[in-house]
Amino acid sequence: MDKEEAEPVVEEEGQVEKEQEQPGGKVPREIAASTAMEVLDTLLKLMGVGGEVEVISGDLPLSLNIESEEVGLLIGHRGQTLSSLEYITKLVVAARLGEWVPLYVDVAGYKKRRQEALQRLALYLADQVVTRQREMSLEPMPANERRIIHITLSDHPEVETHSVGDGWERKVVISPR
């Protein structure tokens, strides 16, 4: 079984934060939200990228969105910059508050649109796999995106999914059941 399937709640975390993931919940949400906003804002400034950070959801997991003129730059190749920005924000917020705060960072709603596109792609490719009766692989994706593919097809009666490759080259393979 895949790592991202085995840990359905927190999709892309390594083992480092495991112990911090336990719901502590001691820090009030408003504090968590304002800290996350401030950290992300500081990171953007230090990167020299203009952008406005907004809190989309103050409930956990916190959801932050960046509106910027430089969307492509902040997303990066295969979303790598966005993933890194989210990860560093989580680390700094956790260090600041002494508690792991689950949060998402998005840029101009990119992840949301990407999720919908990936779900459509997964279903389309599943059809192809069933028709041709041979496996097909997707292009390499970060863990959170692979997870979307796995989950979209988890109940599919005729195909199954797994991931192959390491690091940024890891990709999902869809095969006939």
Partner: peptide, 9 residues
């Protein structure tokens, strides 16, 4: 992750 952010800058 730090390297990725530095690269952008």
């Amino acid at each position: 992750a730090m390297r990725t952010l530095i690269r952008v800058k």
